[in-house]
């Protein structure tokens, strides 16, 4: 179960990060707004899975430090979202990407 959750967490995190990059490079320049809508919906689903699997992982992983850290990683989209502003959106996007990548690294080191 732990490994399955860790895999789901890593995979959804990777897809989330990837979709942010694809959005920045390609989708945001698209004129077909409906296509962009569907893409953003998928991105939200990946992020939702990342949050959910991270949250459940906190119950399975051992050690209070790891539990707190994974919980913070899982909640990072809300924390970043709370402070993000339109002006500094790119910086906050980068912070979000780094959070997810570090969390994946941590899970690999700790579980996988």
């Amino acid at each position: 179960m732990l490994k399955f959750l860790a895999l789901a967490f890593s995979l959804s995190g990777l897809l989330f990060v990837l979709s942010i990059f694809i959005h920045k490079i390609y989708i945001s320049k698209q004129k077909d707004i409906m296509k962009a809508s569907h893409f953003i919906a998928s991105m939200t689903i990946f992020m939702g899975l990342y949050i959910l699997s991270g949250f459940i992982l906190t119950f399975f992983v051992k050690g209070i430090f790891s539990k707190i850290l994974i919980f913070l990683f899982a909640m990072s989209p809300f924390i970043v979202g709370k402070f993000a502003t339109y002006k500094y959106e790119k910086i906050y996007s980068l912070i979000q990407v780094f959070c997810v990548l570090i969390s994946i690294g941590f899970i690999f080191y700790k579980v996988l």
Binding site: H23, S28, I33, M34, A36, S37, I40, A41, M43, T44, I45, M47, G48, P77, F78, V80, G81, K82, A84, Y86, E89, Y92, S93, Q96
Partner: peptide, 17 residues
């Protein structure tokens, strides 16, 4: 999915047509 998108950085990525 909107509440999730609105509470995160995703709200800056999207305009509903």
């Amino acid at each position: 999915l909107m509440p999730l998108g609105l509470a995160t950085i995703i709200r800056f990525y999207y305009n509903y047509p």
